[in-house]
Amino acid sequence: MTANNDIAIRLTGLTKTYGSGSTAVQALRGVDMTIRRGEVVGLVGPSGSGKSTLLKCLGAVIEPTSGHIELGGEAIFDDQAGGWQIDDLRSLRRDRIGFIFQAPYLIPFLDVTDNVALLPMLAGKPNAAARERARELIEALDVGHRVGVRVSLLSGGEQQRVAIARSLVNHPPVILADEPTAPLDSTRALAVVRILNDMALRYGAAIIVVTHDEKIIPTFKRIYHIRDGRTEEEAGAGREIA
């Protein structure tokens, strides 16, 4: 049995229906999921299976229709208790959820350091402290030599590493990665997964990686398959990355 304080995310009976009546589309049909701190799990499924909807519900971007979401042991959504349990969802996203996107989506008019430091600054941290924390992560992700460089001058792999640093900067217990390796070749894709594993272990974050990238699926120790809005858990191969 897993200790409660070790659990980063717990979803129970999560559903999401778009529209109503005859045009209603049930994107999620009762998703259950539990992920521990320091764990990287894959969320795999074909297009239209509900991956993005699940990610948006987890990211507090859209409201689930029913079910229960717990983050670090605290209920953040409960349909029985009236829906969202937290008033300021932007602060929730800023402080407790990290996002990594298919493309890095860095802010092009900020340099490497400020792209990462922006989040703690938005949270009200002093600029110097935010930049110090950002530089630590940038160093940890091997892009320290690019500090102060405009992000448009970085390679695709470097940009993705900066995006990973940004997702970690506020010490979130949960990181949602939406196809983070899609634009990368297999070497770079595996490098990104290795970084995610390292970061999960180092910072104790639970990372959910949405993907249908065959190159990286065998690296997960746990995989959730999503089909027609329902998830099935299976043990992954957990292959070591050289």
Binding site: V61, F99, Y105, P108, L122
Partner: peptide, 16 residues
């Protein structure tokens, strides 16, 4: 638009 969506997603307030 994309940058604004990202800013909102990562917690930037509307007033900012």
């Amino acid at each position: 638009q994309r940058e604004i969506a990202v800013l909102k997603l990562i917690g930037a307030q509307d007033r900012g």
